[in-house]
Design a protein around this nucleic acid. Structure first.
Lengths: 242, 242
DNA sequence: AAATATATTGACTCTGAGTCAAACATCGAC
DNA sequence: GTCGATGTTTGACTCAGAGTCAATATATTT
């Protein structure tokens, strides 16, 4: 491995990021179907052939964009899990992280779902598939650690469910709320209400249903949110301190 | 309108159903990307041009398939809502309907999500878009009616949320559970557990969290499920009486 | 400076959605 | 029955865009 090799590797990695930046912009604006590789090549000022030196297929590009997103999600989650407070407050910090992520990547979940469809997933590179799975697992672990802490602390007294099942319940509601909040369904249910607030409310309902202490009615959610915002997510401009 | 016109209309409608039957089979097997209109034309034994006498685009065909599915979903829901019992039992009948639907159309929700993406939706025919919305609204109303009945009966004493918000919370969890249950996420959370059972459990958690009476721990869920199965969904072969 | 190795390109192929002029069927008038 | 008019169906064609690869350009070694 020569000296110049290090520079080349770095330049290659930079070019890959550049491609992903442009691909992400196009994907967010017009969706996967409308992502055009000739246009993408033009916009990054490399030839189409060069794109294929980095990515196996168009699907592979989309997966790489999604993986970068979910990596950021995992970082948000881990920050949330570090929040100093009761288990319920830390869980709320994860909820905040989830909202923060949703505000940065508004329709990440639609993409995530498309990715997981057989015909899409199999067209992506195996290594990238693996990397994507890893980041998902990081998100899972962040929530899981709070659930086990809550159990040890006695904040989940009545629950006989294993921690994975509890994470599953919370994650299902969070993802379902994101999806229902966006998409044509939205207007039917919430007349202009903030979908991120709705998502947090729904998760609170689930935590109450699990018997997580303290109950949401004994919790000053707004005050906690303000603290989370101030202490660990001060860059979250979407957050209006109620 | 001549006499023969009636026959022609009927034949046209039958041909449309035939096309949708074949398209549905292909979509379930290989997904939207792999739906090939040349193959579809061959399989229904009409030319490609004829497909375009019925549908505007490939997306339009997929939407028509999805609309047929969601119509059946609405019918299941309305059957569920008619179940004789307490509000909580009727809600469980809707859950049963939702599972029954999911077993007939295993990845309907992935499709539904794809449909709602801007670039897809706008390629479908306006009338079909409208028809799809109507069937979604029927599902919504079935759940909504049970929620308002529960409120009137005093089964939801502590809730200050409007009924639409309660429907939103339940629907979010149901859809989220379906999505998490299928897709690569599944194995991470539930080691081979039945995703439909998990979905019902998650909805129970939400109902408990909303303070819906009676609480799930005072409910013999299996007995209710058996009654629902026997009385209104006896064709549900996926259901193993616990 | 020439020879060799490596990196980049864009014209080309190939698949598949969508079109439309021509072929075919139906039907009423004579 | 046949003729023309009207309505229906067809499949060869166009065109866009993903993916390829021989030719070209650039870097490195001798």
């Amino acid at each position: 491995m020569s000296v110049t090799q290090a520079r080349k590797d770095r330049e290659r990695a930079e070019r890959e990021e550049l491609i992903l930046d442009h691909a992400q912009r196009s994907l967010l604006k017009d969706g996967f179907q409308n992502l055009n590789l000739d246009d993408l090549a033009k916009s990054v000022e490399y030839s189409k052939g060069t794109l294929y030196l980095h990515f196996k297929t168009k699907e592979d590009i989309a997966l790489a964009v999604a993986t970068r997103a979910i990596r950021e999600r995992a970082e948000f989650f881990e920050r949330g899990a570090k929040f100093k407070g009761t288990s319920r407050e830390r869980m709320r910090a994860i909820g905040f992280a989830c909202c923060h992520f949703a505000s940065v990547y508004p329709d990440y979940f639609s993409v995530e779902l498309m990715l997981k469809s057989q015909s899409f997933w199999e067209k992506a590179d195996a290594l990238r598939q693996q990397a994507h799975g890893m980041e998902g697992a990081r998100c899972f672990r962040a929530v899981h650690s709070i659930v086990t802490d809550a159990m040890e602390a006695g904040d989940l007294p009545q629950s006989h469910l294993p921690p994975e099942r509890i994470v599953f319940a919370i994650a299902s509601t969070a993802i379902g709320s994101h999806i229902m909040g966006r998409s044509g369904h939205g207007p039917m249910f919430l007349g202009g209400a903030d979908p991120l607030k709705m998502m947090c409310q729904n998760v609170d309902i689930v935590l109450d249903g699990l018997g997580w202490k303290p109950n949401s009615k004994d919790l000053d959610a707004d005050a906690i949110d303000r603290r989370i915002h101030k202490e660990i997510f001060s860059e979250a401009t979407w957050f209006k301190g109620s």
